[in-house]
Design a protein around this nucleic acid. Sequence first.
DNA 1: TAGGCCATCTGGTCCT
DNA 2: AGGACCAGATGGCCTA
Length: 310
Amino acid sequence: MLTLPFDELSSNQTSSPIRTSWATNQIIKSVKPEPGRALQDTLKSGREDGERHGTEEEEQEEEEAGGDLRRRGSRKKKLSQARQDRVRLRRIEANARERNRMHGLNNALDSLRKVVPCYSKTQKLSKIETLRLAKNYIWALGEILSTGKRPDLLTFAQTLCKGLSQPTTNLMASYLQLNTHSFISESGGESFSLYPAYHHYRAEGVGASSADNGRPLRPFSSFCGPYDALYDLSPDCSSPLDAGPLSPPINFNGIFSLKHEEPVDYRSCHYGLRYRSISQSSSADINPYDIHLCGQFYQVQEDLNKPFPN
DNA sequence: TAGGCCATCTGGTCCT
DNA sequence: AGGACCAGATGGCCTA
């Protein structure tokens, strides 16, 4: 009778039952016990047996094998049954550790997905795209910090999408399109944020303007406000990508363009957001450099609120 | 159906 | 010796 190492499996749940059963099969394949002996027994006693019995036998075998190696070169050493079991057990343990390690890595990647733009619960970026986008995002933010200037929308978008695949670029374009118009063109639908912080503001009803029926607007130029992420570290938000299909982005110049929208006066809203952001923070939390940046943000707000040049 | 993405297994290497 | 890390191999799932 075959007994599976369920302890190992249960302590290392995969996200998919299919995966789990597949893993189970793999273990069955990789841990074929000898006939008439339960695997559990094998695993349970493997280490002790291996250590206890293995010593004499192994020494003898190794001596033989060593002698063979000296005489004939490459003959593979034959292991005792106890040693084979022990090797199997160690392999199973190593597999479990490796699975855990990869799960940890995936969790970290999920965390990363939540803090880069373009976060969607259902339409997840691939691992490689997440890393690329994160790199671009960091680079773009660093550029803003070092120069003290915010790039225009297209430049920033192009920076973010540098090296990304076409599907991801399209996804990004879809985000940006919605960011510029969906809040006011659709009522009742779930809105989204290029920056996770938006939902925090929205949930609190901060920054609603008269033009949006009480619905808080994300300003067109808010795309250039990456500091949002500094003020909210709980990016558990959904996106319109979770809610339904998107209109295809308009591509041009090898990257993408944004739909041209009628200019909307977002400024009151956005100033409100900014003020709220800063005022909500305790003085100890405020980095002087942040204040400087935010101040600068206001100065050029008007320019950035101009309709995006096509 | 091909290709992309992913999870897992596996053996090798390095480090403690 | 044993664990962490890595990269290659493999096979499943999904989508265009």
